[in-house]
Design a protein around this nucleic acid. Structure first.
Lengths: 112, 112
DNA sequence: ATCCATTTATTCTGTTTTGTAAAATAAATA
DNA sequence: TATTTATTTTACAAAACAGAATAAATGGAT
């Protein structure tokens, strides 16, 4: 029996952003949320290819929104974490925590 | 200026194992440490290619040990995290924590 | 009313880096 | 010289990433 997979580093970051944003989770908002929390400058390509991959694996679901009445207000694609996705985040969190708990570098990260 | 990179998911796991093992961090011991803590079945190839990449980036350092007086006791290659590597683990920890803190899935992982 | 520049947004294309398994090789002892 | 512990090599799959292309909307000029 082969290994069950864990979420990649960026996949986990994106899942976190989705969970935080709830209903408001679409492209630009996700990029801004990640930038705001981590200072990371995420390219659109990086984000969407990750979202599509997560969708294919059944860890996120997408729904189409409606166009908004502002210049360029094209319809958004909103994402949310599925139950399966939630489970995967937990699995990754457990693995990471088990491995890193108690280490100074990790604790330092927890405070910041 | 492009983005500074973060450690990958498995890279972070390996760095954690090195920190835990201290002086005793070599191939088999690292694999066993990861298996023990996470249940993950790491192949030797996966481990060494990751260690070599981390070494090339200056995040770990290797030293050769001496052969041990047991059947097949070939000399081991021991690894330790460099100061730069320590910094990278912190950076990744901070990013991950900032993104995930407060989320139920993450907290659940922290307990387990 | 229609064209078109501009804006917000997603999709597509291609490349690099990371993750992985398995086979090959090496160095030791019994 | 067979067996054991260990590392190295090889080859490929998956994840991360950037940037260009495309799409769909509005606002203003004519």
């Amino acid at each position: 029996m082969p290994n069950e997979k864990f979420l990649g580093e960026f996949e986990l970051i994106v899942m976190g952003a989705l969970m935080r944003l709830g209903d408001a989770a679409y492209g630009v908002a996700i990029i801004e949320e990640i930038d705001h929390r981590t200072g990371r400058d995420v390219s659109v390509g990086a984000l969407y290819s990750t979202l599509n991959r997560l969708e294919k694996k059944g860890y996120v679901e997408a729904r189409m929104g409606e166009a908004s009445a502002v210049r360029g207000g094209r319809a958004k694609r909103f994402f949310r974490v599925t139950r399966q996705g939630q489970t995967q985040v937990e699995r990754s969190a457990i693995a990471l925590h088990s491995m890193m708990q108690g280490l100074p570098a990790w604790l330092k990260g927890a405070q910041a």
